[in-house]
Simulated assay, not measured.
Amino acid sequence: MARELTQLELLRELESTAEDNVNRHLKVARDWNPHDYVPWSDGKDFAANGGVDYDPADSKLDEVAKAAMITNLLTEDNLPSYHRVIADNFSMDSAWGHWVGRWTAEENRHSIVMRDYLVVTRGVDPVALEEARMIHMTNGYDPMLAAAGRTEELEGQDIDGVGLLHSVAYVTFQELATRVSHRNTGKACNDPIADRMLQRVAADENLHMIFYRNICGAGMDLSPDQTLRAVTDIVTNFQMPGAGMPNFRRHGVLMAKHGIYDLRQHLEEVIMPVLRKWNVFERNDFGAEGEKTRDELAAFLEQLEADASRFEEMRDRSLAREAAKAAKAAS
């Protein structure tokens, strides 16, 4: 059985991959300014400055778009929690440290532009939004431990060789998931300005995903069984980073019901493309433990496919009932 690498060994062995991918990212990333994506002429003062406070009638967004925008923004707002986890499990030296700083700065643009858009257009209640931000950020979130499903086992222990791999596996899937969610939210807003803004944000998320996917892929080549164990922990216990925010369950149901982000998208647009990129089900370099882990992952994916189909059937029936009820009311 191959020895598992420690956190320090992983950082050293993967440092050249990190450097190559930082350089790649800097070549392809596009700098942009949040203020260029906000319709400032739509803005007006609130009561504190002699204007009028928010009224629900001000918003041009429907309930689905509101739920998605709030969820996506609060996810971006909680950046300090994700920065802490990444910084703790990476290194602040060399390419690792440069990436942590660059990634954090780029992600911060997302919350800036989304909040400015929502406040200027009065898309949602800004007071309720700020209250939710305070709650979500105060609670914080540890995506690595929560997603790994091994909180009690790992917390307070030396997790050498686990922290880095779980972290890069989680953010690989999380960045791709947020890309899908932002892209579909832009369409749901029925506003070309919001759509353009969220396409820009989604493009960033895709580049971030590629960085983490390449690091994790290199980890798979370096220590296949160990990395697949981390990937399987993440996939089988995955939670979106918004889990725990106010109204997350209600908003999540609305988003799934109306095609912003659902189980089918999670499986086919997030999990499977990444696993195919890593050749998880084609590679022949796993040991006995890796083969066992791969079987566990395959069984989970089979169940997820069944769950997605069952959800789609329930959703279709629900939407059909709502459409019939609306048609009856209109007649």
Rank of each mutant, 00 (worst) to 15 (best):
A148L: 05
K257C: 11
M197A: 04
R213S: 14
K27S: 12
Q226Y: 04
E130A: 12
I86A: 15
S111W: 12
L118A: 05
L304S: 07
D53S: 10
L10N: 13
W103N: 03
F46Q: 04
E322C: 02
M220W: 09
D160I: 01
G287P: 15
R122S: 03
T185D: 03
M220G: 08
M114R: 07
V124P: 05
Q239C: 08
C216V: 12
R250D: 14
H166G: 14
E15R: 09
I260F: 10
P192R: 00
A230Q: 07
V168C: 11
L61R: 01
T71A: 12
G149H: 01
N247M: 13
L254P: 04
A188Y: 02
I234E: 12
A128I: 03
D58T: 04
L165T: 07
E106Y: 02
E282L: 11
A194V: 00
E291H: 06
H110M: 00
T104E: 12
L10E: 06
R3M: 09
N190C: 04
T172H: 07
F90C: 03
S167L: 14
I135Y: 11
Y82Q: 12
E302D: 14
Q265G: 08
A308E: 06
A105Q: 10
I260S: 11
G50E: 05
I234T: 13
D262T: 07
L11I: 09
V235M: 09
L228E: 08
M197R: 08
I234P: 02
K257E: 15
V162C: 04
E153S: 01
Y212Q: 05
M197W: 03
N237C: 02
Y170D: 13
E282F: 07
R264C: 09
D93W: 03
E305Y: 07
N139W: 00
P273R: 00
D316G: 01
S91T: 02
N33T: 13
Y212N: 05
I271D: 10
G259T: 06
I260G: 11
W278F: 10
E107H: 02
P143Q: 00
P143F: 08
K257Y: 12
R283I: 02
T75V: 11
